[in-house]
């Protein structure tokens, strides 16, 4: 049925085409390794960046003395109870 169109020819061409090579090829291995590096790097980055952010904020809050005394009801600061 498909012989009317050059479907099979197109199909073969498209099937053969992979960005950076077909399955189990050097190009695909390289892409996989790059993807894994991004995956691991982003996880490490999330841990590191959040650690910096939280420690900075906690230090600032301790220095401000915000939690030394009971907060006032209806306080406009974003302390406990806000």
């Amino acid at each position: 049925m498909f012989d009317t169109f050059p479907y099979d020819e197109w199909g073969d061409t498209v099937t053969d085409f992979w960005t950076w090579g077909p399955a189990n090829s050097t190009g695909t291995y390289i892409l996989t390794v790059l993807g894994c590096i991004l995956m691991v790097g982003s996880l490490i980055g999330w841990v590191w960046l959040e650690k910096q952010k939280l420690e900075r904020q906690a230090a600032a809050l301790r220095a401000s003395g915000a939690f030394d005394q009971p907060a006032q009801t209806g306080s406009q600061t974003m302390g406990p109870g806000a």
Partner: peptide
């Protein structure tokens, strides 16, 4: 776990630097 000061203040200010209901009055928790 986040530092206890951050937990009391709320994680949004430490993580994102903002309150996400800026147009609404803040009432006691």
């Amino acid at each position: 776990r986040v530092p206890p000061e951050v937990e009391l203040e709320g994680l949004d200010l430490a993580e994102f630097g903002q309150d996400f209901y800026p147009e609404f009055e803040r009432v006691p928790e």
